[in-house]
Simulated scan of single mutants.
Amino acid sequence: MSRVRFVVVSVATALTMAATASLGLWQLDRAAQKTALEASIRARADLPAWGNGELLAAPDRSAALYRPVRLQGRWLPQHNVFLENRQMDGRTGFFLVTPLRLSGSEQTVLVQRGWVPRDFNDRLRVPAVDTPAGEVRVQGRLAPPPGRLYQFGEAGTGPIRQNIELAAYRLETGLPLLELSVQQTGDDEGPLRRHWPLPATDVQKHHGYAFQWFALCTLVAGLYLWFQIIQPRRKSNRRNGPEDAR
């Protein structure tokens, strides 16, 4: 029975160590992937800015996310959307999203123009933001469509919304929207704040998880050595000691 128990414990220990070590290596691999992604994002952010022509001609725009752009077009303020419960610099307010019709084309792109505070005394009050008429130049960077927050029920259709769903918004407005957005950069403009951080990749989180898995693997190995090898030998030596003395 003692021999069988030793074999069972040894097999279980080996499997546990293999699993925890594999999970630690997987977390390190995830960290390496995210480090490479972060480097790619920062490299794209340093590329020359695209204009209208380069943006419209790009075969795979999703591969150019976070690349700078300098676009020309006309604002369509009748389709303004204020996304609520959005944070910037630790404050909660709205992200103002306005479609921009690109000059020389019918194509339109959603522009996240910046963050504005909301009136907490009148939650239905839309902030007053100046929207220039005529052709404008917009400096920014390509980005995914505005991130989704949890909401109860379906997205609304008014000027204040929790989320904006690109497909539904395209049907609602009839606009030929590109499958991405632009985060407008540059100086703050009136109430608009434009302190957009690059996306965080949480590499440190994966390093922390890897340390925990490797620590657990080491703990299992230490417990096995102590209870299955060291402690039984010490007991055996104590039992055999008096006999050897006689």
Rank of each mutant, 00 (worst) to 15 (best):
L124M: 03
N52S: 06
L177D: 02
R123Y: 03
R91H: 05
P197T: 13
H195P: 14
G140T: 12
D202I: 00
L178T: 00
Y150N: 06
L216E: 05
Q162P: 02
N80I: 01
V81I: 09
Y66L: 14
A168P: 06
R137G: 13
P127I: 03
Q33N: 08
Q112M: 05
A18Q: 13
L37P: 00
R233D: 00
W75L: 02
D130Q: 13
T201A: 11
G241K: 07
R44I: 06
G222F: 13
R101L: 04
S40I: 08
P197C: 13
A155R: 08
L225F: 10
Y169H: 13
A128I: 03
E179P: 13
V126E: 04
P159S: 10
L177F: 01
R3K: 15
L56T: 06
L171Y: 09
C217T: 07
D130P: 10
E189L: 15
L198H: 03
L65D: 08
G158L: 05
V4S: 15
G174A: 09
Y169L: 10
Y169V: 09
K235G: 12
Q72L: 11
A45H: 09
A128S: 11
Q33D: 11
V9M: 06
P59N: 07
V203D: 12
N240W: 00
A215Q: 04
D89R: 11
R238Q: 11
R170W: 03
R74S: 12
W26Q: 08
A245N: 15
R148A: 12
R161W: 02
R141D: 03
N52Q: 04
A12S: 06
F94M: 05
F211P: 04
L71A: 03
P176L: 14
F227Q: 12
Q112Y: 00
S22M: 00
F95Y: 08
W115S: 12
P242L: 10
M88I: 10
K205R: 15
K34R: 15
T157M: 06
G114F: 02
V203I: 15
L25Y: 04
A221P: 06
F95T: 02
L149Y: 14
L192D: 12
A215R: 03
P68M: 03
Q33K: 10
L28Q: 14
R193M: 01
H195D: 15
G153Q: 11
L23M: 01
Q151C: 01
Q183Y: 08
G134M: 15
E54A: 11
L28W: 15
A49H: 09
G51A: 09
R194N: 13
V116D: 08
L175C: 08
L171M: 09
W196K: 14
L23V: 00
Q27N: 11
V182H: 01
L216N: 05
S105G: 09
Q78Y: 01
A200S: 12
P159L: 05
A49G: 06
S10H: 01
L15E: 02
R137W: 13
R74Y: 07
P199S: 13
D202Q: 02
D119V: 10
A12N: 01
R44P: 00
R193K: 07
Y224K: 06
E106R: 15
Q184H: 01
Q72F: 05
P59E: 09
L149D: 10
T157H: 07
G174Q: 08
E243C: 00
